[in-house]
Amino acid sequence: MKRRFVIVASGLALSLLLSLSLVVHDVRAADSAGPPVATPPRNALSLQLISIVNSGVNVQYDRLMAPNFSFGPSLGFRKSGGADIDVLESNFGIESRYWLIGREPFSRFDGRAMVGPYVSARIDFGITRDTQNGHVLGTQMSVAEGVALGMRFVIVRRFEVTPSAGFGLRTDFDPRGRLAPFWRGELGRFALLAGVMF
C-alpha cells in the first residue's frame, strides 16, 4: 500500500513537472532562441523532493510580488505508519521570501528574478491523524513558524532546485483537549524543492 502510494505520488509529481515544462516551453519558445531571457518569470511551482521519498506530496507556489519579494502558499499530504498504526498528515503553509541579490550563476534571466540566495519566513498549519484497525486513535494539530536561508538554482531552462536550511518553533495541540499543548524548537529544518518557473 505504502509502495503504491509512493509510486502514484511520484508519477503525479513527474507528470506535473513534465506538463508544466511543456507548457512553459510552448509559451516561451522564443526564450530558448538565445540568452538572455527577456522577462524573468514571476511564478514558480515546486515540489518538496524529500516528501516524495517519504510517502508524501507537498506542492509550493511562489509569486513575485515586488522586485525582491515573493509570496505563496504550499499544500501537502503525507502518509506514515503502516505497521500496526496508520498515520495521515496534511499541511497548509504560507511562505514569504526576500531575494537577496536576485541572481545566480546558471540562469539566463535578464535582470533580477526569484533566483539565488534568499531569506524566508513561513507559517504552517497541519493536522495529524492516527488510526489503528480503522479506529481513530486521535488527532493533533500543529502551528509552526520558521525562518530559513535558501538558494534557488536554475538548472535547465526554467527548472529550479532550491535547498534551504532553517529553524523554527512548533506548537502541537490536541483539538479535543486530550493532550496539553507542546512547544518544540525546531533547530534543524532542511528542505529541498524542485520545480519550474513560468
Partner: peptide, 9 residues
C-alpha cells in the same frame, strides 16, 4: 520528516 516534507532534527 515533518508535515511540510522537510527534515527536522
Amino acid at each position: 520528516t515533518n508535515k511540510t516534507g522537510a527534515w527536522d532534527v
